[in-house]
């Protein structure tokens, strides 16, 4: 989820256009998920672009494929630059820590805990990066270390269920969900035995 299509909201209603790592703006005045069942919910449905425009509507006709691709290239590259701003510092920081031996120290210290997951000690720093920073930071940290493919799969498996916890906590809160409970639940799943399956099954 890393592309900033600025006119995304034109099609999908009041959708915030932002990338992971940017705080949500405060424009939603209704922060609960209480529905507003009104007689003209059908009209609202039509307005929120769940209705397919007619084949000859101007919106559809005015979008040549080449223009879209160029626009997407620009968006994609902009998103890539944003990601690079996260990945590069984390990568170099972890590489530096690795080189200086601090990672090895940490790994020794955390090896008993990591063994519960069937992971090497260095995995702890990748997990922490994924939990408290974004998934892409964890990607950078993971690549900066030299872990076997089974460990990569296991770490990624855990992180995909549960990453960027502070940010997603804030998003859930905005959505009106019980943010703390959901976040704790995701974290519990992430470190549950189900998540360690990849590392305990045969190394692929």
């Amino acid at each position: 989820m890393a592309f900033p299509s600025e006119d995304f909201s034109a099609l999908y209603g009041s959708l915030p256009t932002l990338r992971e790592g940017t705080p949500l703006s405060d424009e939603t005045e209704n922060t609960s998920i209480e529905p507003t069942f009104s007689p003209d919910a059908g009209d609202a449905l039509a307005k929120t672009a769940l209705v397919v425009p007619e084949a000859d509507s101007p919106r559809r006709a005015a979008l040549p494929a080449k223009g879209i691709v160029l626009h997407a290239l620009r968006d994609g590259f902009a998103a890539f630059l944003d990601l690079a701003k996260i990945i590069i510092p984390v990568y170099f920081a972890v590489a530096l820590l690795n080189y200086s031996g601090l990672i090895a120290l940490l790994a020794e210290w955390l090896r008993p805990a990591m063994r519960l997951f069937g992971l090497p000690g260095e995995a702890a720093i990748v997990l922490l990066t994924g939990w408290f920073m974004t998934l892409y930071a964890a990607l950078g940290a993971l690549r900066a270390l030299d872990l076997p493919s089974s460990a990569i799969t296991a770490i990624a498996f855990m992180l995909l269920f549960c990453h960027a916890l502070p940010l997603e906590w804030a998003i859930l809160k905005k959505m009106g969900a019980r943010a703390t409970r959901v976040t704790l639940m995701r974290f519990a799943i992430s470190i549950s035995p189900a998540e360690s399956m990849p590392s305990f099954t045969a190394a692929r």
């Binding site: 209603g13 009041s14 915030p16 998920i33 507003t36 009104s38 609202a44 929120t48």
Partner: peptide
């Protein structure tokens, strides 16, 4: 991604859909 999905969910829930 969750940001866009959550945003869409908020918008559509508010609209009653």
């Amino acid at each position: 991604g969750i940001v866009y999905g959550g945003g869409a969910m908020i918008a559509l829930t508010r609209a009653g859909a």
